[in-house]
C-alpha cells in the first residue's frame, strides 16, 4: 500500500508519483471520472495499474492517497 501523489503536470495531464519507487508517470485512463466519482483503477503510460478508493468528486490536486498495485499488467 504505497502512498502515491496525484498531480497535474505542466501540460495539464494527471500524473501519479510513487516516491518510494521513484516512479512518476502520466495516467492514461482512470476508472471513474466526471459524474460517477473520481478514482478507482488507474492505468499508467508504462502499463502498470494502481487502485485507490474513489472520491465522490474530483478533489483539490495534488493529493496524496493510499494506493495498491492492481493486478493484470497490460
Amino acid at each position: 500500500m504505497p502512498s502515491v501523489m496525484i498531480r497535474r503536470n505542466d501540460e495539464g495531464k494527471l500524473t501519479l508519483y510513487v516516491a518510494k519507487k521513484d516512479l512518476e508517470d502520466v495516467i492514461i485512463s482512470m476508472e471513474k471520472s466526471g459524474d460517477e466519482g473520481w478514482g478507482g483503477t488507474v492505468v499508467l503510460a508504462d502499463g502498470s495499474r494502481y487502485y485507490f478508493d474513489p472520491f465522490d468528486t474530483e478533489p483539490k490536486l495534488p493529493i496524496t492517497v493510499r494506493a495498491r498495485r492492481a493486478g493484470g499488467e497490460l
Binding site: M5, R7, D10, Y17, A19, K60, P62, I63, T64
Partner: peptide
C-alpha cells in the same frame, strides 16, 4: 523535489 511536492500539496504553491 520532495519538499516542493509537499508544499504544492499542502500550501498550493506550484513549483518549476
Amino acid at each position: 523535489n520532495y519538499i516542493s511536492r509537499h508544499m504544492e500539496e499542502k500550501y498550493n504553491i506550484p513549483w518549476i
